[in-house]
Design a protein around this nucleic acid. Structure first.
Lengths: 112, 112
DNA sequence: CTAATCTACAACCTAATGGTTGTAGATCTG
DNA sequence: CAGATCTACAACCATTAGGTTGTAGATTAG
């Protein structure tokens, strides 16, 4: 899987408010799928699918404890998303820097 | 529109590699829609739709120059997305801090 | 003026999304 | 053991998304 593939999965997973909420809630300690589902006005199966999307994106990991599946957010992946946006900003700043360089260079390429 | 609504739009816009590419390319100077479309193996109309998605999300602004529409990325919105992920990280760190606090507090709530 | 270019938008198609219900396998509880 | 709970998964449905082609309005070039 390429980096772009991973970015697709991560941003897509983040593009749903229920999933963002699940992500936040499972940062604050491990919760089972049904515990996560409780507050939402949707079926357990729907929440389960949301968790699966987060899982596929690597934003969350699951591990069994008896009959329940505990969900924990993987901060490294959240940070990878941050890094991507930081990269965007770096490109932006590089452009600004090039621009101010041109302004500050006296007579660059002027006629002799 | 709520903050969650905006987050939906922004992350959804970022969840497509063509749109991320358009975003990067229009950080590096203003480009017309058809100039943006040229490198991609898809119709102009398709690229136009992608630009529209970025526009609705506020990641990009358009302004006319003659018959062409120049596209410029709005860094403030990119930074807003960064801020959202930073907020996630803050929640995460707060949890870690609470945890280490408990460890470092001697005999808190112990039997008298 | 005429022809070419740039953009917008509608209509259409297919595949993916977000939701539902129902079934079934594990695991715990009494 | 019997019943309840937790999870997974399939089948289905309605809507959205990403793509296409085609039409039409401005603007520029010759």
């Amino acid at each position: 899987m390429t980096g772009e593939d991973r970015a697709d999965l991560v941003f897509n997973a983040l593009a749903d408010r229920t999933r963002r909420d699940i992500l936040r809630r499972s940062m604050d300690g491990e919760l089972s799928v049904s515990a996560l589902a409780r507050p939402y006005a949707m079926s357990l199966a729907a929440v389960q699918k949301h968790v699966a999307v987060l899982d596929r994106a690597g934003l969350v990991t699951k591990h069994r404890r008896g009959r329940e599946q505990l969900v924990r957010t993987d901060m490294a992946t959240v940070q990878a998303a941050q890094a991507l946006l930081d990269e965007f900003e770096a490109v932006w700043r590089a452009r600004i820097d090039r621009f101010t360089d041109v302004l500050n260079t006296p007579n660059e390429g002027a006629a002799p």
